[in-house]
Design a protein around this nucleic acid. Structure first.
Length: 598
RNA sequence: CGGGGCGUGGUGCAGGGGUAGCACGCCACUUUUGGGAAGUGGAGGUCGGCGGUUCAAAUCCGCCCGCCCCGACCA
């Protein structure tokens, strides 16, 4: 491809304060935004996308996946059968066709797979199977953000395993677990697998595949000692031993102006963890029903884990209460507590850690006053005690007690053990050897292609632009001619032809432009190998070779082709080595993750 | 959905009641050619939309739309 013929231009500047990598993708002419959460991939971006897709296909095929293709526009009835028509709200985009039939844009394809399975699987002899596709999904996100990280329309590689029993599912799950590490390694990003919430997918066991990065939206919990890794939403921590200290007498203490946990603990000179913090939420238990107040009590430094609060209360909708709502329920903002609050005013849920502590500090529900020697069992009636606090940095690992570490990351893939919910509701049954009908046991396995793309760009850029691995770079070689000298033009053209003929992907900057512009654009686009033909290089005997992340050297004009081949072969070998290195610990990890568990 | 910000040539921005500007890009010619060249000449904008105030609105007011950020939300 000649730059003079390329659709899409580089830009000197773009607005916004996105991730640096996303700005480079925009500036290099890989992407262009159409509207919130909707992006076009320009030719350069599309080439990279296709290389990522090729890796996905190869690794899915390698575990026995069969590619197919399912509609994005789907009739409501399969979503009604699975129950998700009602259980998912606004992210599922609904509309009607001309006949007034309810339709939806697929945000995932479990229903269709179950429907296909019902029609195509009838015997245990038809199992196991793995099918997958790379297809558009649409999720009408409340707020798209972060460039490619959270878009509304996006491509996903989604795979589905069909098995006759849990043992079969388990082995498909492990195969995907391994394949996802391989994909990350080939795409050139580090990856961590963490236990995750099953969310609206339903099912039992789930893992997320995370690219660790401070800009990520997800909060992960790691134990460096035993290897425990989980999304904060589901991370377990060790409970403290129940305290046996004598219960003191409940007393009010004046705490003027001490509204936050920090102020309060400083004022009363108690450890913040001994403060029972009350956080008020409004919970909608059934869609459309009036919200009820839920008071969550957690240790002072802790955050409320919304996933747990949701499951503890059965809420479908959960949001922080406003001051007005707190007052209306009879609470005093800043001094809130379950004490002195009418039982019918709010549901109270207490973190189990607090249940094991004695003589805590909590609000008095009176402006300027708190309570001392507060003991849950004695001083609160009608409370539900459960795990509620999100794991914090330094909390003891539930496995081994070592301090946990909190990190941020970007989730680009996930795997779910779905079980039989979808197959049962959509009639995906098979006959076993005894002729008994059984539901097919399903798993579902997604990778967001755009997110993976974004993660790759984030991992591979420097101050000048992208530095993509050969495996995903839109072109292997950036060829640049400098100046208008005839000899330069001749060698550049000849090299371009020669390389193209050899099947090497070359982006030839044949424009009449100053060298600075060409070098800057080549750096921005990030092709792994740059070849410059210039009066200076001719003087030195040929062309200049420079890796995007390496030093320049002169190559004789007669050996350009073979040297390019050697360079690319070397880059390829480095990437293979890197994949091997990255995969080395994975088997041990799999053994550790799946023995005795799940 | 709450809070904040921004919509002005292709891109990035300034202007803030009276002639619509700058830089980059683009077109033509000339000179240049190893890190985003120089000169000369040119093209390109119903100032997001609708309504209002005014002799006069890009500018003031109202409503709407779009985009961005924070939060809520989130396979």
């Amino acid at each position: 491809m000649r730059v003079s013929n390329l659709f899409g231009t580089t830009r000197r500047s773009v607005p916004g304060d996105d991730l640096a990598s996303h700005q480079f993708l925009l500036r290099a002419g890989f992407l262009q935004q159409l509207a919130t959460g909707l992006y076009s991939l320009l030719p350069l971006g599309w080439r990279t996308e296709q290389k990522i897709r090729a890796i996905l296909r190869e690794e899915m095929n390698a575990i026995g996946g069969q590619e197919l293709f399912m509609p994005v526009v789907q009739p409501a009835d399969i979503w009604q059968k699975s129950g998700r028509w009602n259980s998912i709200d606004q992210v599922l985009l609904r509309f009607q066709d001309r006949r007034g039939r309810d339709m939806a844009l697929a945000l995932s394809h479990e229903e269709v797979v179950a429907d296909l399975t019902a029609a195509n699987v009838s015997s245990y002899r038809d199992l196991p199977r793995i099918v997958y596709q790379i297809q558009t999904k649409f999720r009408d996100e409340a707020r798209a953000r972060g460039g490619l990280l959270r878009t509304r329309e996006f491509s996903m590689k989604d795979a589905y395993s069909l098995d006759r029993d849990q043992a079969g599912l388990q082995s498909a799950y492990v195969a995907h677990f391994r394949a996802y590490f391989k994909i990350a390694a080939r795409a050139g990003i580090p990856v961590a697998a963490v236990l995750s919430d099953v969310g609206v997918m339903g099912g039992h066991l789930a893992h997320e595949f995370i690219y660790l990065n401070d800009a990520g939206e997800d909060t992960l919990v790691f134990c460096d000692t035993c290897g425990y890794a989980a999304n904060q939403e589901v991370a377990e921590t060790q409970l403290p031993e129940p305290e046996t200290e004598k219960e003191g007498e409940l007393e009010e203490v004046a705490t003027p102006g001490a509204v936050t946990v920090a102020e309060l603990s400083a004022f009363l000179k108690v450890d913040p963890s001994r403060v029972a913090k009350s956080v008020a939420f409004m919970a909608e238990v059934e869609r459309g029903q009036p919200a009820r107040m839920v008071l969550a009590l957690v240790p002072g430094p802790a955050e409320v884990n919304l996933a747990r609060l949701r499951s503890a209360t059965g809420a479908v909708e959960l949001r922080p209460a406003t001051s007005d709502e707190i007052v209306r329920a009879g609470g005093v903002p800043g001094y809130m507590s379950p004490r002195g609050l009418a039982a019918e005013a709010a549901t109270v849920v207490v973190d189990e850690t607090l249940g094991r502590r004695r003589n805590l500090v909590t609000g008095a529900n009176r402006e300027g006053w708190h309570l001392r020697n507060f003991n849950i069992a004695r001083d609160c009636q009608q409370v539900k005690i459960t795990r509620l606090a999100a794991a914090e940095n330094g909390d003891p690992c539930s496995n081994c007690g070592s301090p946990l570490r909190i990190r941020r990351g970007i989730e680009y893939g996930n795997i779910f053990q779905l079980g039989t919910d979808y197959s049962t509701s959509l009639g995906a049954l098979y006959d076993d050897e005894a002729g008994e009908q059984q539901p097919v046991v399903m798993g579902s396995y997604g990778i967001g292609v755009g997110r993976l793309f974004a993660c790759i760009a984030e991992e591979h850029h420097d101050e000048r632009g992208l530095t993509l691995p050969l495996a995903v770079a839109p072109f292997a070689v950036a060829l640049i001619s400098v100046g208008q000298e005839e000899a330069v033009g001749q060698l550049a053209e000849a090299s371009y032809q020669q390389l193209c003929d050899a099947g090497i992907e070359v982006l030839f900057d044949d424009r009449v432009a100053s060298p600075g512009v060409k070098f800057a654009d080549a750096d921005l686009r990030g092709m792994p190998l740059r070849i410059t033909v210039s009066p200076r290089s001719l003087q030195a005997g040929g062309a200049e070779f420079k890796r995007r992340l390496g030093e320049a050297r002169i190559v004789a004009r007669k050996s350009i082709l073979e040297e390019v081949k050697a360079e690319l072969e070397d880059l390829r070998r480095q990437e293979v080595d890197r994949v091997q290195t990255q995969m080395a610990p994975v088997e041990a990890l799999i053994a550790q993750t799946f023995t005795g568990g799940a």
